[in-house]
Computed example of a mutant assay.
Amino acid sequence: MAAADLSVLTAQLLANAPPAAPSLWPPAWPVWALALSLLLTLLAGWFYRRKTARRRRYLRALRQVKRQSAQRRLRQLHALLRNAGGAEVRRLSAAEFAQAVAQTLGQQQPPAWVNAHYRRRAERVNWRDVRRLIRRWCA
């Protein structure tokens, strides 16, 4: 009896066949994770580029200012810094602007090159401080 039941059961078994091939859609979860991480990376890069575009534009203009003659360099540097500081810095008087520069740089006295374009004698510019000002004001 057991042998008869076993032969009936084995007759009902299907032949060994491979399972059906997986479909291409929907993709497996690692594909979705990779696509999502790529999208988030591109989005973060786009936001970073937009955020730093103003700073990069002013630093590029600073490189052009450095190539000018001494007195013209001071005038253009003054205009560049006033524009980089935004509307609140543009409204400041010369003395208030000098104090804003000193405060941003963490100094007691403003550097000699600030507002030096008003004087005849050309002052030596500390370009590292200028870059620091642009980076802080264009953050």
Rank of each mutant, 00 (worst) to 15 (best):
W46S: 13
W46G: 13
W46H: 09
R49I: 04
R50F: 12
T52M: 15
T52K: 12
A53E: 00
A53T: 00
A53S: 07
R55Q: 08
R55H: 05
R55M: 09
R56I: 02
R56L: 09
R57I: 03
Y58H: 08
L59P: 04
R60G: 00
R60N: 01
R60K: 05
A61W: 04
L62K: 02
R63T: 09
Q64P: 01
V65I: 06
V65H: 02
S69T: 04
S69Q: 08
Q71A: 15
R73C: 10
L74D: 13
R75M: 11
Q76K: 04
H78R: 14
L80H: 03
R82M: 11
N83W: 11
N83L: 13
A84L: 14
G85D: 06
G85C: 06
G86M: 07
E88T: 15
R90P: 00
L92M: 04
A94C: 11
A95T: 14
F97W: 07
A100F: 11
V101C: 09
V101T: 05
A102S: 04
T104I: 08
T104H: 10
G106Q: 05
Q107F: 03
Q107W: 01
Q108H: 08
Q108C: 02
Q109S: 15
P110C: 10
P111A: 10
A112T: 12
A112E: 15
V114S: 15
N115L: 12
A116E: 07
Y118N: 10
R119P: 03
R121M: 01
R121G: 02
A122S: 13
R124P: 07
R124F: 14
V125G: 03
W127S: 05
D129V: 00
V130E: 02
V130F: 03
